[in-house]
Write a protein that binds this DNA or RNA. Structure first.
Lengths: 206, 206
DNA sequence: AGATAAGTTGAGGGATGCCTCAAGTTCTTG
DNA sequence: CAAGAACTTGAGGCATCCCTCAACTTATCT
C-alpha cells in the first residue's frame, strides 16, 4: 500500500532531523510563514537541502504539525474525561488556547485557511468531531447555551487567536481574562436573544 | 501658528485629490498595507507623484484616516445620547464593529499598532476617552460587569476585528453573532469569577 | 580503495514591494 | 509668449523571499 519509504543515507537522515527540530522551533515562535531560509540556517544546512527534503512548505508542515496536533488531542481527551460537561467544555477551551499561546505556529494552523497535506487534514477533521462531542455534551446537560454551534466555536478560535497573538509578548495571559468573559456569555442561563442582524446558526456552517 | 500651506498648482491639487480618493478606496478594501503602487495606479498617477505628495505611508494615512475617525466619533456620540447606559454601550460596540466591517483599513487602524501621525493619534486618544465615558456609565448603572475595564475593550476590539476580517467575504454578519454571545458575558448579572491565571485588570493597562 | 549512487551547496533568476532621482512636462507669471 | 518654477514620470537600485540546478562532496557497497 504505502510506498516503501526508501531508507535515507545516514547524513541525510541526520539533516532531516535537524530540519524538523529547527522548523518546529521557528514555526512555534515566528509563525507558519517564517522564511524557510531561517529554518535552514538554524538547522545548519543550506536552503537547497531543505528543499531537497521538503519540496514545499506544505510538506514541511505535514512533517511538523502532527506532534502539535497530538498535544491537542490530549486536551480533548482530558475534556471528555471530565465528569462535568461544562467543566469539560471549559477545560477544552483553556487547554486549546494555552497550546496556541505557546505555539505561534499552532495558532496559525488552527486559524488561517492553510493548505495542509491530506493526512494532516484528516487529523484535523477528527479533532473537530471530538470537539463537537464536547460541545454537544455540554449543551445536552443544559449548561452551554443551546444556540451555540460548531461554527461559533470556529469563530471563537479566530477571536481568541488574535488576542493571543497580540498580547503574547507583553501580557501573555490576557486571553484568559477574555475567555472568562466570553464563557460567562456561553452559560445557558446567561443567554439573551441575539442582536438584530446576527445570522442564525445554520447560516454560517463552514 | 500653522505653517502656511503654500497653494498647490492646479494640476497638483487635482492629483492629490485623486490620490486621496484612491487611497480611501484601496485602504478600505485591501487594508492599510496595500501596495502604494496600487493606489497610484488607481489614481491614474505615477508612483513618483504619490511619493511627491505623501513621502511616507504614514503621511498618506494621516490624510485619509480622519474621515473614518469622524464616523466613529458619530457612533460614540449616539451611544452617549442613549438614555439607557447599557443600550448605549451596546450601540457603541455595534456601531464600531459595523464600521470596521465595512472598512478593512479602519479595522487595521484600530487594531494594529500603526505608526500614526501625532495629530491622528490625538484624535484616537480623544475617542478613547469618550469610549471610556460609555464604559464607566454602564458600569456605574450596574449593568456592565464591574471588572470590565478599558484594556478589556481593547482586547475585545482585537478579537472582533479578527472575526470581522475572517468572515467579511463569506458571511459578513458573523461578528454580530459573536458579539451577542460576548455581550451576554458582560452583563453584570452574568459575571462569574475569572478563570485561574487570568490577569487582574490593572495588569494589562496598555 | 574505488566506483557510484545519494545528498549537499549556494549562486542566481523570478516576484513583489519600497523608495529615489535625473530627465521631461506643464502650469503660472511677468 | 517666454522662461522659470512647480510638478510628473518611470526606470532602476535595494531588500526580502521564493525556488532551481549544475557542480561538488560524501556515504555506502563490493
Amino acid at each position: 500500500m504505502a510506498a516503501a519509504p526508501k531508507p535515507l543515507r545516514s547524513d541525510a537522515a541526520r539533516n532531516r532531523d535537524k530540519l524538523l527540530v529547527a522548523a518546529t522551533e521557528i514555526f512555534a515562535d515566528r509563525g507558519l510563514d517564517a522564511p524557510l531560509e531561517h529554518i535552514a540556517r538554524r538547522a545548519g544546512v543550506s536552503i537547497g537541502t531543505l528543499y531537497n527534503h521538503f519540496p514545499t512548505r506544505e510538506a514541511l508542515l505535514a512533517a511538523v504539525l502532527p506532534d502539535q496536533l497530538a498535544a491537542l488531542e490530549r486536551v480533548t481527551e482530558a475534556a471528555l474525561a471530565d465528569p462535568d460537561p461544562w467543566d469539560g467544555f471549559v477545560t477544552f477551551l483553556e487547554g486549546l488556547f494555552a497550546l496556541q499561546s505557546r505555539d505561534h505556529g499552532l495558532n496559525d494552523a488552527l486559524t488561517r485557511g492553510f493548505t495542509l497535506a491530506t493526512d494532516v487534514l484528516e487529523v484535523c477533521k477528527q479533532g473537530f468531531l471530538d470537539a463537537e462531542r464536547i460541545v454537544v455534551r455540554a449543551k445536552e446537560a443544559g449548561r452551554l447555551r443551546a444556540d451555540f454551534g460548531m461554527p461559533d466555536l470556529v469563530t471563537l478560535i479566530w477571536a481568541m487567536s488574535r488576542v493571543i497573538r497580540e498580547s503574547m509578548d507583553t501580557a501573555p495571559d490576557t486571553w484568559r481574562r477574555c475567555l472568562s468573559f466570553f464563557l460567562d456569555g456561553l452559560r445557558a442561563e446567561a443567554a439573551h436573544p441575539l442582536l438584530p442582524g446576527a445570522p442564525t446558526q445554520t447560516d454560517n456552517r463552514p
